[in-house]
Design a protein around this nucleic acid. Sequence first.
RNA 1: GGAGAAGUGGCCGAGCUGGCUGAAGGCGCACGCCUGCUAAGCGUGUAUAGGGGAAACUCUAUCGGGGGUUCAAAUCCCCCCUUCUCCGCCA
Length: 425
Amino acid sequence: MLDLKLMQSNPEAVRESLKKRSSKLDVQEFLTLDEKRKELIGQSEELKAERNRASGEIAQRKRNKEDASDLIKTMGEVSGRIKKLDAELSEVEAAEKEWLMAVPNIPHESVPFGASEDDNPVVRYWGEKPEMSFTPREHWDLGVELGGLDFERAAKLTGSRFVITRKWAARLERALATFMLDTHLDEHGYTEITPPFIVNRDTMTGTGQLPKFEEDLFKLRDTEYYLIPTAEVPLTNLHSGEVLEEDQLPMLLTAHTPCFRSEAGSYGKDTKGIIRLHQFMKVEMVNLAHPDHSYEALEKMTACAEKILQKLGLHYRVIELCTGDMGFSAAKTYDLEVWLPGQDKYREISSCSNCEDFQARRANIKFQPKGSKKKQFVHTLNGSGLAVGRTLVAVMENYQQEDGSIVVPVALRPYMGGLEIIKPE
RNA sequence: GGAGAAGUGGCCGAGCUGGCUGAAGGCGCACGCCUGCUAAGCGUGUAUAGGGGAAACUCUAUCGGGGGUUCAAAUCCCCCCUUCUCCGCCA
């Protein structure tokens, strides 16, 4: 949510931002509502002040055993008018809030302008594509052949876009998650959290999934509970409605959770393999940061995600999302795209964003600056560190050998009981 | 799931036979004063959001959340949430 004051004082900036994001929202619509709101508040509060005065007068008279029936009569009418005004006011406020909640964050000035993902500039590359003397295969081939991935039975148990990992794949997935968590804990100063995987409506609203993107979520029937699409949701909302001490910032949180996405509107996309599933595991990083340092923090968080890929020896590139491709809550986003030889493509494996105070305002997360009375909103950052399922794909495709076996990256071997190579049975 | 108790300001805790109570008192905190001493005392201040105002300031709302009764609600009524105790069930 944007600052109401910014909307009022500088609507041009918001109009500009919406244009860059090719949003159709009309700022004038909001300004009209806001005018109406102020007008109604003025009228209503004037009457309330009168009522409060009269109430004191009535109380006084009653204590003196005097008659107050005339005042009571006129106040009855006043109350009626207040009720009407307030009803009208809450309608206007609801419309205004709905509008405000639908506005995406304003891109940081450094974010390149662009219409779609095709306009995202590459910031840097790390490593090189692995040399292969044979035609690399795709992970679903390798996975099924090596008995690690089972799509058919997952479809039987549930439906499409689910997978069963077994044997080495199940363990490798667990190894990857543990390896990632250990790295963030021991080397990056994160605190591990295991949050609920089901959250309520307010929590989903705090990070921006609701009210606009309900169709992307799984909702539990007859409740206001939702399955989390990412641990960003519970982690960022962990301190919602709270005022933190300044020295608690930056607060670095990480969690390994399943993520559930309906993938509405992605029919036909990535239908093979485990790139796009309704349920996948992810290690997430969240930072509740001081507003003065949130952009350094974004660079650091991106580096933490990169560190995982580097330790695994996986070639990747960092791209910067352009204005037209950024998520709703983000002010600036870097995506990490790992090289997948089987698909002959770079694929997103992490996305690190600074949301500035956009989510903090929605979720009401503040801190008390030292030596200042005024509480301020924190800045929130989130990033995958990494998507575990996609990392499993990257390891399989990059470490495959001509005979269909897969070499276990050295960094993972301690987590795999020393296993060095995954071979056909 | 069943029965009961409770939810007040940063914290503790009054108020809850409706009325000048944004809310006594205490603690904590901030600033000032006093004091030549490892203590105490005194004074003032100490919420958030919104409206009006250049500002001083002023008005409105907020006593778990929502709705209702009333001229008027922290106080009465209804629904929901959370916590605690007992029973049942369970990992």
